[in-house]
Nucleic acid binder design. Structure first.
Length: 486
RNA sequence: GGCGGUAUCGUCUAACGGUUAGGACGUCAGAUUCUCAAUCUGGUAAUAGGGGUUCGAUUCCCCUUACCGCUACCA
């Protein structure tokens, strides 16, 4: 059975790069009817934070990446790692190192000064039994280091890149067990992947250089190493590693900014994998069905928010009201609308119905959930502000006041208050006065919404409500009169 | 510096030795339309450079260049 895992360390929010790694590991497991494990690698006591672990779990759930086992916390398994490290010492594959942090620092300083390659100088590698006993009896803090072969090379196969070889001289005697008794990534990762029967280690390509360490560890334990799949990283538009200064980097942030999990997941899917044909839109299940390692790219991809926005807009448009409502209502509630208020505005619809109608107009036009509200503020606010550019563009030309008055009269006359009546009245009155329709529509739109871009004029006026629409038109006429006086 | 990885339009990618190098986002025109959005049509734009191998290289090999990663008692 295929077994994959996602093994984040809880030192921050779930990064989109991590999310993609998780997505591919998930998809690979699902495609093969395998198992997907979530393991939290919290062996760094300094930097690990439970709230981050919660956030990561949350973000994965939000994206719908369900796991079959976990979350497993490595901090709960401390004893397992210690035992294994001790076993390697007994086997002669590892040794205790009593070098202090200070000595290591000094050593490193000397190495950089001389320009020689950095790395542990293996001083404790050949300590006699007596020397070890002595330090142990003095309770000198110590770590357990792995004995890397002093020559030769370590070769492994990466499923994406083929054979990769590293000279062993390149690897130093890395630490397995820290002096606080916690394992390093290398130790814990190898032990867990073996104990959990992980068949495919899928992780970021930054792990390529330490894979020889892991291969040697498997060998020392007498274990069969898993298949390694090193996924390329995700870059910012400037080609650098995606970081805070490039804007949003975490799944949580995209969620807060109004992106849909379906869209983010779809976008991340495309960032490094393709189905082979021209399809670009995938649901989670379709991805699980189609995903294969052969079609994963080796090249690091740039995260392009423009395309994500496009995808999000597409998903948003197709989102049913039932699913959209809970996402958008928190924003709507901030306006604290009251039934009487709507009545005062001249809105003839029931509040819930009215909200739904307005939001659906926005949903078709927006790219993110937050955009929806931004595009519709004039429906929810008592007063509007007139956008300068829009005013400049449309509050001009011959008989501007006359054209707007046509609109005002139509609003007053429409009976019953309906979209159809409004259209009939406005068009009819414009014809009588000999105004070309757009010459009336455009300034009217600015007058009632404050903007040059909005949903269809008649629908918009209808939803704004007769009273509020009239008030806005009066205000616009006032502004125009004022401008002309000057 | 050492070691390793990667290299097709601005971006994401397709083409598993033979294509007018395809698609998508973006962008630019145009159609439609009361604006926006949506939709449709058309245009724009790429094989990093140099050597091989081959009848033939985007594709295979080598070198150069560029970019990225690793070089912690971090993962």
């Amino acid at each position: 059975m295929i077994v994959t895992r996602f093994a984040p360390s809880p030192t921050g929010a779930l990064h989109v790069g991590g999310a993609r790694t998780a997505l591919y590991a998930w998809a690979f497991a699902r495609h093969n009817n395998g198992k997907f494990i979530l393991r939290i690698e919290d062996t760094d006591r300094e930097r690990s934070d439970m709230s981050h672990a919660d956030g990561i779990v949350d973000a994965l759930q939000w994206m719908g990446l369900n796991w079959d086992e976990g979350p497993i916390f490595q901090s709960d398994r401390k004893e397992i790692y210690r035992e294994h490290a001790e076993k390697l010492v007994e086997l002669g594959a590892a040794y205790r190192c009593f070098c202090s942090q200070e000595r290591l620092e000094e050593m490193r300083k000397e190495q950089t000064g001389k320009g020689v390659p950095e790395g542990y100088d293996r001083r404790c590698r050949n300590l006699s039994i007596e020397e070890v006993e002595l330090e142990l009896s003095k309770k000198t803090p110590h770590v357990i280091r792995f004995k890397m072969p002093l020559d030769g090379e370590t070769i492994f196969r990466d499923e994406l890149r083929g054979t990769i070889a590293y000279p062993n001289t390149q690897q130093d005697d890395f630490i397995l067990l820290k002096s606080d008794g916690f394992p390093t990534y290398h130790l814990a990762n190898v032990i867990d992947d073996h104990l959990m029967n992980v068949t495919h280690v899928m992780r970021g390509e930054e792990w390529i250089p330490s894979t020889p360490k892991h291969v040697r560890l498997y060998e020392s334990f007498g274990w069969e190493p898993p298949a390694f799949v090193h996924l390329p990283v995700i870059l910012a538009p400037d080609g650098k590693k995606l970081s805070k200064r490039h804007g949003a980097t975490s799944v949580q942030e995209y969620r807060e900014r109004g992106f849909l999990p379906t869209a983010l997941l779809n976008y991340l899917t495309l960032l490094g994998w393709s189905p082979g044909d021209d399809r670009e839109i995938f649901s989670r299940d379709e991805l699980a069905e189609l995903f294969s390692l052969e079609r994963v790219n080796k090249r690091s991809a740039v995260f392009d928010e423009t395309k994500l926005r496009w995808l999000n807009g597409k998903y948003l448009m197709e989102l049913s009201w039932d699913r959209f409502e809970p996402l958008i209502m928190p924003y709507v509630e901030k306006f604290g609308l009251k039934d009487e208020q709507l009545k005062d505005w001249g809105v003839t619809l029931d509040k819930n119905e009215w909200i739904k109608k307005t939001l659906e107009l926005g949903k078709e036009r927006a790219e993110t959930v937050i955009d929806v509200i931004e595009k519709l503020r004039f429906f929810y606010e008592e007063e509007i502000e007139f956008d300068e550019e829009s005013v400049k563009k449309h509050f001009k030309g011959d008989d501007l006041q006359g054209r707007i008055e046509v609109g005002r009269e139509a609003i007053q006359a429409a009976n019953p208050w309906s979209i159809e009546e409004l259209e009939k009245e406005i068009r009819g009155r414009a014809d009588v006065k000999g105004f070309k329709h757009p010459k009336v529509f455009h300034p009217m739109r600015v007058a009632v919404t404050g903007r040059q871009h909005a949903p269809g004029l008649f629908t918009t006026i209808f939803l704004i409500g007769r009273n509020r629409a009239l008030k806005r038109v009066e205000k616009a006429l006032g502004i125009i009169a004022n401008t002309i006086d000057r």
